[in-house]
Each structure stands twice: as C-alpha cells, then as structure tokens.
C-alpha cells in the first residue's frame, strides 16, 4: 500500500520514536512492523488536524461538553448491588473472592 510521507511543514512531525514513546504511555506494546505501519499514518492525521490551531482566537472559550454539566446527587440510601460472584465472573483470574492481578511493583522494590 502507498503511504504518504510525513510533511515537515506541519506543526508537528510524528516520528517513529515519538509513536513508540506514546504507545508506551498508553500501555500498548507495538512490534517494529506495527510502528512502521502506524507512524506515517499518524503523521498524516496529525498534520491534518493541526488546522484547529489556526481557527480559534485566544478569547474563544473552550467547550468540553455540549450541555452545561452539573453535579448530580442521589439520596444516600442502601440499594441492591451486584453479588461478588457476578462482579468476578468476567475476571481473567480470581482468588478468594478477589481479582487476582500480576505484581504491581518493580522487582527491585
């Protein structure tokens, strides 16, 4: 397939190393082949969306949500909830009514 080369004229050129760094932040292992495949595609997309930086002036407020968001409360009363076995039914691994997970600290810790 033909993949367009990243343009150096855009605000930010997405390099293969940059994609590898972002994938690490996003906790996704990527093979060399995947990096080769995704990096030029992401470069084209980022070049294309960079147009937003030239549209809105500083004084324009940002919108995070289409409608005004307000805090919603409910009454602090006990109500039925899922049984532990239902909550655990989809877990990859269970031990003594708990989620069993790999170690969370580094080996040197």
């Amino acid at each position: 397939m033909a993949e367009p080369a990243a343009s150096s004229g855009a605000g930010h050129a997405m390099t293969r190393d940059e994609v590898a760094r972002l994938a690490q932040l996003a906790r996704i292992d990527l093979s060399d082949a995947e990096l080769d495949h995704l990096a030029p595609q992401l470069a084209v997309i980022i070049e294309s969306v960079a147009v937003v930086s030239s549209v809105a002036a500083d004084e324009v407020p940002g919108t995070s949500h289409p409608l005004p968001v307000r805090n919603v409360f409910r009454r602090d009363v006990v109500r039925p909830s899922l049984a532990p076995e239902e909550v655990l039914a989809g877990a990859p691994e269970v031990e003594q009514s708990r989620f069993s997970v790999p170690r969370i600290l580094g080996e040197e810790a």
Partner: peptide, 13 residues
Amino acid sequence: DAYYGQAQKVRTL
C-alpha cells in the same frame, strides 16, 4: 493547548 485546547475552542465556534 495547541491540539486538545484548540479543538475545544473550535467546538464552541
């Protein structure tokens, strides 16, 4: 700021 922040402003417009 340059990407997400600006996109939110475009959303306002």
